[in-house]
Amino acid sequence: MVTAAERVSSHKWGMAVDVDRCTGCQACVMACQTENNIPLSTEDIYRQKRTFAWIRIERYWYGDFPNVKARFIPIMCQHCENAPCEPVCPVFATYHNTEGMNVQIYNRCVGTRYCGAGCPYNVRFFNYWEPVWPSTLRNQLNPDVTIRSRGIMEKCSFCVQRIRRGVREAAQEDRDLVDGEIQTACTDACPTNALVFGDFNDDNSRVSIMSHDDRKYTHLDSLNTEPNVVYLAQIDATGGAIGEHE
């Protein structure tokens, strides 16, 4: 019999991002912001250079004038197997769990910010202030996600609240999970399906199939971080895939 602990840890969650499909529309950014109770990046916060975005769209130009083209790359926590942020945490508030996720335990965090300094992808954010929402937004906060107080590091969690709910509901109905059943907020919102979420332990899942594509690359390969987020390079109509940027 599968124990409850085995049922949870039998997955290896990951994401595949098809850069060729990304139009840079920012729907994922908004979806993430609302799903995860991310503090608002107001003008004041922006001027302090302390804005939050668990997922952001990086924009690159390529080609020479007049044939300039834009390339959009969504960047979120890469959930590295070999994460530079983990060993530097003095209190084990961030660690790699059995499901292949790099998790952040807010109540364990003491706010040293070492992990933020260690992360080469710049996807960890520190709460310099107590988050405040205008009264009109209070009721849209997600009750399934802890509101991080001041002095705490936060980052993309692969929407762990949705994973927990999905796994639990499957167990409740006594059935196996179906690929695509669990969606993170960003993959749910993506209109072009550039973002795909799934289980790498399932050989037939969409992420597994995409991770065997020729266009597959991972970011900052040279650092050997072994991310659980894989990217598929953009196809240039004039010939060949455009390689990884450094």
């Binding site: 602990a5 949870v8 660690y95 364990r108």
Partner: peptide
């Protein structure tokens, strides 16, 4: 109780 009954004890079971 989770330990004794092989229920998940990963921190993200209860904290997220």
């Amino acid at each position: 109780c989770h330990r004794k009954n092989d229920a998940p004890t990963d921190c993200t079971t209860c904290h997220f």
